[in-house]
Amino acid sequence: MIAVEVSYAATPQAQQVVSLHLELGSTAEDAVSASGLLRMFPEISLGSVNQLGVFGKLARPEDVLHDGDRVEIYRPLLADPKEVRRRRAEEGKAMKKGGGPKAAA
C-alpha cells in the first residue's frame, strides 16, 4: 500500500485535500477516482478541461504513483499569462514582480 493525497482548489480560497491509501502500482487517475472529488465537483473533466500534476509537475492520468505523492487537479487558466504580458507591453504598462499593480516611487 502507498499513502497519497489528492488536492483540488475549487476556488482560489477553497482547497480540498483527500488522503488515501492505495495499492502499489496505482495511477494518478486511480487516486482521483478513489478520492471522491469527481463526485463532489462535477465540473472536473480530466483530459479535456483539467490537467493533473504531482507536486507541481504535469502528470498523465496513467502515471504510476509513489508513496507520499500529492496529486493535484488543476483548474483551467482564465487567461494565458503570455498573452496578458504581451498586451501590457503593447500598452506600455510595467508590471512589478508578482503581477500586481506597479508600486509608486
Rank of each mutant, 00 (worst) to 15 (best):
I2C: 10
V4Q: 05
V6D: 02
S7D: 01
Y8T: 01
A9K: 00
T11Q: 03
T11A: 04
P12S: 02
Q13H: 12
A14Q: 13
Q15L: 14
Q15T: 15
Q15G: 00
Q16V: 07
V17Q: 09
V18A: 07
V18W: 03
L20D: 09
H21G: 11
H21I: 10
G25L: 08
S26D: 01
S26L: 08
T27H: 06
A28L: 06
D30I: 01
A31N: 00
S33W: 06
A34D: 00
G36D: 04
M40E: 15
P42T: 01
E43W: 02
E43A: 14
S45A: 15
L46I: 15
S48G: 05
S48E: 10
V49S: 14
L58P: 08
A59S: 13
A59I: 07
R60S: 15
P61I: 11
V64Q: 13
V64I: 09
L65Y: 02
V71E: 02
E72Q: 01
E72G: 02
E72T: 01
I73T: 04
I73K: 02
Y74Q: 02
Y74A: 04
R75Y: 12
R75C: 07
P76W: 14
L77D: 13
D80T: 06
R85I: 12
R86G: 08
R88S: 10
R88V: 12
E91Y: 07
A94W: 03
K97H: 09
P101V: 13
K102V: 09
K102E: 12
A103C: 00
